[in-house]
């Protein structure tokens, strides 16, 4: 008997022909020698046969006619808008132009031209206007001695 006994998952897939060809053959060989597994497979066959005997429920009227009537009154579905880069090209170009414009304007205002000195900042300069030192008295006394 084949060493590898198939579990129910494998047996079920074998029954549906959904195993790879090598394993399908392996399971077939095992089934030929294993009455217990063969009995399991018979149960799967029985279940499938019973499904075939289930009453086939039908809608009982022509839905196509009903749908066709409703569709005639409904608007036609619109195809999806093109989402590819080609579709977005005009938008992207506009956005890029806006950004470039902004950068150019900013550069014209603050870059390139000399930055104006703000007079108010000189209030905090260590040297007072007119270069008069209002610091130590020795600044002046030293000069006087010479």
């Amino acid at each position: 008997m084949n060493e590898h006994r198939p579990d129910m998952i494998e047996l079920s897939a074998y029954f549906d022909g959904e195993l790879d060809p090598v394993r399908q053959q392996g399971v077939a060989a095992h089934l030929a020698a294993c009455p217990a597994c063969a009995a399991q497979l018979d149960l799967l066959r029985m279940l499938a046969a019973d499904f075939e005997r289930l009453p086939a429920a039908t809608l009982g009227f022509d839905l196509a006619g009903v749908i066709e009537g409703r569709l005639a009154a409904a608007p036609r579905p619109q195809p999806r808008r093109d989402r590819s880069w080609r579709g977005l090209l005009p938008v992207s170009a506009g956005a890029a132009a806006s950004v470039a414009c902004g950068i150019a304007m900013g550069f014209a205002l603050f870059g390139g031209a000399a930055t104006p000195r703000i007079a108010a900042m000189s209030v905090f300069d260590t040297m007072p206007p007119g270069s008069l030192c209002i610091g130590l008295e020795s600044c002046y006394t030293n000069g006087a001695k010479r």
């Binding site: 086939a56 429920a57 039908t58 839905l63 196509a64 006619g65 749908i67 066709e68 036609r76 195809p79």
Partner: peptide, 25 residues
């Protein structure tokens, strides 16, 4: 897709019972 209702009706006719029995169950 091109708006041919008759073509869609043919698809409905083909699948109305399989869809119905599935959703019924």
């Amino acid at each position: 897709q091109a708006g041919d209702h008759r073509a869609f009706a043919l698809l409905v006719g083909r699948y109305q019972d399989p869809v119905f029995r599935f959703v019924l169950r």
